[in-house]
């Protein structure tokens, strides 16, 4: 009995040794900062960039339209930027899916060796510098970039096209950096796809299109949903891609937040904007978990 107790005691000490450092670290440097950010988003901006400790919901009012004119003025431009960010993120998800989905089917049916090689080629860019990969697209798309040079030299156009500093350029840049994020979950569900069901559907007289819609699409839906979420979340709050490929013209939530923190110095308003990104993320995750039920719980684990 005594040795049992000491065994249990020793295990408790081991567990404490393993968990305490991380628990402290996360409490202080992760949950702490998040809490402070949430609190800050409800405080009033100070005159010279600080905060004033009064409850001040008008930061949100300024974005969402219930601002009290005595404190803040509702400017629809912020809501417009939020909606535009949602739109660009949604387009990014759709475009990434179109790029990755057919390729996943092709790669899933290759031999083991080729499959592994292809997966290696797809994951490799993930490990290379993001800023460098975006920079290449500046060289390709800008006025004197390679696309315009080639088109001009070929006589197809006589004036350079405006390719860079557009919404399209931002979506293209995001698709380029988020390909591995979408491909991996989609590929995982395509590889698991039970082809006997597809064959059965075809044998029973369903056409290829009907088989795709009724069998293949629902069976790969979990991968598509997973990929969509892990692309949408970083796309929504992204500020590097619009900063590099969107120029000064195209503003997204990320740039607006950066501006509030580093130049406008209105931290409470910036925090409120960041909370909008967080809320969008939480809503998405909630819907995802609800929609996929138990499967969602498994994925989270």
């Amino acid at each position: 009995m005594a040795s049992d107790m000491s065994l249990a005691g020793r295990r408790r000490v081991q567990l404490a040794l393993l968990l305490t450092p991380v628990s402290l670290f996360f409490a202080v440097f992760f949950l702490g900062p998040l809490t402070i950010m949430i609190v800050t988003s409800f405080l009033a901006p100070g005159l010279y960039g600080g905060v004033e400790w009064v409850f001040y919901p008008h930061n949100y009012g300024r974005i969402l339209g219930f601002a009290d004119p005595a404190f803040e003025i509702f400017d629809p431009v912020y809501l417009a930027i939020f909606l535009r960010s949602l739109k660009i993120a949604a387009f990014t998800v759709i475009a990434t899916l179109f790029v990755c989905y057919p390729a996943a089917f092709c790669i899933a049916r290759l031999s083991e060796r080729w499959k592994n090689f292809c997966l290696f080629l797809i994951t490799l860019p993930f490990f290379t510098s993001l800023i460098v990969r975006l920079f290449i697209w500046v060289l390709i798309l800008r006025q004197t970039g390679i696309v315009n040079e080639v088109l001009l030299a070929g006589g197809i156009i006589d004036r350079p096209l405006e390719l860079i500093y557009t919404d399209g350029a931002i979506v293209l840049g995001m698709v380029y950096i988020f390909i591995p994020f979408m491909f991996m979950p989609v590929y995982a569900s395509v590889e698991k796809l039970d082809w006997t069901l597809v064959r059965a559907s075809l044998d029973l007289g369903a056409g290829p299109i009907r088989t795709f819609i009724r069998i293949i699409l629902p069976l790969t839906a979990p991968g598509i949903a997973g990929g969509a979420i892990i692309v949408f979340i970083p796309a929504l709050g992204n500020f590097v891609v619009p900063a590099v490929l969107g120029g000064a013209k195209v503003m997204m939530l990320g740039n607006l937040i950066e501006q509030q923190f580093l130049s406008a110095r209105n931290w409470p308003f910036g925090s409120a904007l960041a909370m909008m990104v967080m809320c969008a993320m939480l809503v998405l995750l909630f819907v995802y978990v609800l929609a996929s039920g138990r499967r969602g719980a498994d994925v989270m684990n």
């Binding site: 402070i36 709050g237 960041a274």
Partner: peptide, 8 residues
């Protein structure tokens, strides 16, 4: 999202 963690 990176930016949220960054500003927090």
């Amino acid at each position: 999202p990176d930016i949220v963690l960054g500003i927090a």
